[in-house]
Design a protein around this nucleic acid. Structure first.
Lengths: 336, 336
DNA sequence: GCCTTTCATGTAACCGCTTGTGTTCCTCGG
DNA sequence: CCGAGGAACACAAGCGGTTACATGAAAGGC
């Protein structure tokens, strides 16, 4: 059997209680004793049993990250931000994905959370998602990333603003027939989606421009979806001269569609995305950059902080991180 | 306090032992009793305490996934495959990244593994990586993904073959001056890297072609690295007519470099990658597709299987998954 | 009809740590 | 010189399950 706290205690000639306190840095332990215990623990190659510690203390020292997708750029990038914080905090990161409309059958996450984690981080689940609410009903410390919900701490960007900035950029370039590639149909008012669209409309209205319903298409936040959406826009009787894609990946798809139609992004049609995806630079895509990794990092820090000062209820504050328009070659002034 | 197994036992008028057996599906429990207990447990909204269960049983029901990168395509895609399997198996997935040569300071994973997980999945750590060996020294059930190591179960593709296939494709198209963009310098014989290079050499030799050392460049498996490498190749006095990039992402970078030099992939220079990256179709890149998600899925299945039939030592078998050349527009016959 | 199995369940000893409640021994002010 | 206060530890009762072993009843064999 592996060696236990008892072995350390015996070797040090103290009680297990003292070892426990010494090793965890609690007060009321003589400096010399503590040092000796630490040395002995090291010598004995002692490792605390997390299960025992958790059972006794009631804290699990781990937090769950719930996400609809793992392999998509946005989500994995957020995840990497979260991971770095949790690693530094010495907490375990339990990763679990949830079923998505298009996805396979997955177990709902809520039952697997109870008694298993101290807190939950949820990445971009739509605000009315059932599984999201099941998790919230658990009433454990939770932080949302990329979505806001009344009363729940969250970290996001200002999606309305992002939509405005992108659209305004196109307007500034002289475009008036501006198309938009959104995520999913309105049945699914995914916050980012919805808010960016509002920003789009506000910018258009402010400029006195019409939003032509024929110039809206759904791209479902995927490359393939963006391609289809752009194809739909291009086959209009009167295609747009500029397009706002609500994510870079959809913009990539849109670029492909443009090329298939013999059009060149930035020359024949202007295109702006949102994200600051790794590949956007490579593809010379103008985009509204959001600090994706920071989204995860800051949410994780907030949650860890709340758990550690676990005394009072955390004031459910929502953090809003800044975005930045990055102009590249995919947008250019409207020609003649 | 949350309700415990004791409460269920009392409500059912049986002992906690019976509840434990009934709920876990162990034999020697009357069907009626089991059913009644299950119903009561559900009614009471009972959830087992993982910590208690783990402490008592000695099994943690969780496995760690160790990876150098979380946000890169290959790694997050493997991870998604792993996650789906573990979720179905009802196991917890602990995600931890390790320090990389270029990375920040991170705690070594080995100490955090002991007594905390039942098994470990390691994604593409170089075979001689110190942290890898620290983990292996723990001597717990482990499976490698994307790397092979004598005596350790692993799931990979045949990287030599992948290198051959890619190179042979270029040779078949009539190319003779073939450049190669590898990962890191030989100090770091990352398996995939090294093996793909061997495949490259074998194909070249078999065709009686010279491998010009001047036509080798390091791309470090990143887009930016690929771009630099390609730039280096293009500024040779006698540039290659075709290039084998050992990963799609490096190939993307290479494409960018080519465009910067006014060259078009597939017309002026042929380019083939390895991976089957999401974006490769979009960029019309010829590539050797590997089943990345399956890599993770199969490794996870093997590990879970080993843990469940935990009796005998698992025969440390290495699974090799097939690859497939996907010819697209980035490669074409050598022009007169 | 008696003895051996087999099945269903109970009993209770852990699993390894945390923490509230003592107990001792100093230190210090008055 | 005495009592109060506090620092440094020890004690021991959990935390909530699991599981080896014991028990009793029903079933089966001869």
């Amino acid at each position: 059997m592996a060696i236990t706290i008892k072995d350390v205690a015996d070797a040090a000639g103290v009680s297990t209680a003292t070892v426990s306190r010494a090793l965890r840095g609690l007060p009321n332990v003589d400096a010399g004793t503590r040092e000796r215990i630490q040395r002995i623990a090291t010598d004995l190659d002692y490792v605390i049993s997390p299960s025992a510690s958790r059972l006794a203390s009631g804290r699990t020292g781990s937090i769950a990250v719930i996400t609809p997708y793992i392999a998509r750029w946005f989500f994995s990038t957020v995840l990497s931000g979260v991971e770095s914080v949790l690693q530094n905090a010495g907490m375990d990161l339990l990763l679990m994905s949830v079923s998505t409309p298009d996805g396979q059958h997955r177990l709902p996450p809520a039952p697997r959370l109870r008694r298993r984690v101290d807190g939950v981080l949820i990445i971009a689940l739509p605000p009315h998602d059932q599984q999201l609410h099941e998790v919230l009903a658990l009433n454990m410390p939770t932080s949302l990333i990329g979505v806001t919900l009344e009363g729940i701490p969250s970290v996001t960007i200002d999606d309305v603003l992002a939509g405005q900035i992108a659209t305004q950029h196109l307007i500034n370039l002289g475009h008036t027939r501006i198309g938009v590639i959104t995520g999913a149909p309105v049945e699914e008012p995914f916050t980012a989606d919805h808010d960016r669209h509002r920003g789009f409309q506000q910018a258009m209205n402010a400029a006195g421009l019409q939003v032509d319903p024929a110039l809206e298409a759904y791209g479902y936040f995927t490359i393939a979806g963006g391609e289809q959406a752009m194809t739909a826009l291009l086959t209009q009787r009167n295609p747009p001269t500029a397009v706002f894609a609500m994510s870079d990946e959809m913009a990539f798809g849109a670029m492909k569609a443009m090329r298939s139609h013999g059009l060149q992004p930035g020359r024949d049609i202007s295109l702006v995305g949102v994200d600051g995806h790794d590949m956007s630079e490579f593809l010379d895509l103008t985009t509204v950059v959001q600090p994706v990794q920071d989204l995860g990092r800051i949410a994780a820090e907030a949650l860890v902080g709340q758990l550690q000062s676990s005394g009072g209820e955390a004031e459910a504050d929502s953090v809003i991180l800044p975005t930045q328009l990055l102009v590249r070659g995919s947008t250019s002034p409207l020609k003649g």
